[in-house]
Design a protein around this nucleic acid. Structure first.
Lengths: 118, 118
DNA sequence: GACTATCCTCGACATACGTCAAGGAGTGTG
DNA sequence: CACACTCCTTGACGTATGTCGAGGATAGTC
């Protein structure tokens, strides 16, 4: 990518037809690509699976940093990526930030790239 | 990523439990992440959608280059990424290479990241 | 053989990305 | 107020990535 990617609001829900439904437009392709890019990292995959397997209360930055063996700065970076893509929800409580997955957003993203579904 | 990612054979079928099924192992996370990374590009999303919407015979490099306004070298690069990730199949015929989507692989990848499905 | 078409590889360039160390901003608690 | 804990931001670093131009390999045509 030679030029900077345009900034897109990814916190809104995904609303794109599946890639198999027809040739996607530029904007839709970029939207999907940015969400997938937020997911396309081994740390973030593990992070998501941990959060998905955790209780409904969610998990904190420190919890995840300890479990993944990375610094809190790095975890904060990854959490930011996932949150900005709308795949993770944050709930502030005192000094703590509890993160929970947005299962609807994940499911919607999955359906977009599934040529079988829908 | 400070150090080079280990090379993994992605041409084989995806065989991972959904991320919501439990905390995924390092290797599985890397496998899924690499496949998603192959998909996490606007050009490759458009490319896939074009190939998915095309006939069963598949499309050639030149066809896609013309439709996307990129050079054949760039298209070759993207096609290589998708093929190496096992998401695209190539069929050689004379000097032509016809590319078709691997719908099963795409569907499998979608199911891995879908917390609703399965 | 000469020419053309298709595809791939290579090298170069600019940009984006993951990680950490250091430090700052809030929010509790004594 | 002082201290501790949690989280985020910034700057720096090495690496990876997308794009192109140039050129090479193979197959088909005249």
């Amino acid at each position: 990518m030679p030029k900077a990617l345009p900034v897109i609001d990814l916190s809104a829900g995904l609303c794109c037809p599946p890639v198999a439904a027809g040739v996607v437009r530029d904007a839709a392709a970029l939207d999907v690509a940015l969400r997938l890019k937020a997911l396309a990292d081994p740390v973030r995959i593990r992070l998501l699976s941990i959060v998905l397997s955790a209780g409904a209360d969610g998990l904190r930055n420190v919890d995840l940093a300890a479990q993944l063996g990375l610094t809190d700065a790095t975890i904060s970076h990854h959490l930011g990526q996932l949150s900005r893509a709308g795949l993770l929800l944050a709930r502030r409580q005192g000094t703590n930030n509890y993160y929970t997955p947005d299962r609807d957003a994940l499911s919607a993203l999955a359906q977009v790239i599934d040529p079988r579904c829908c």
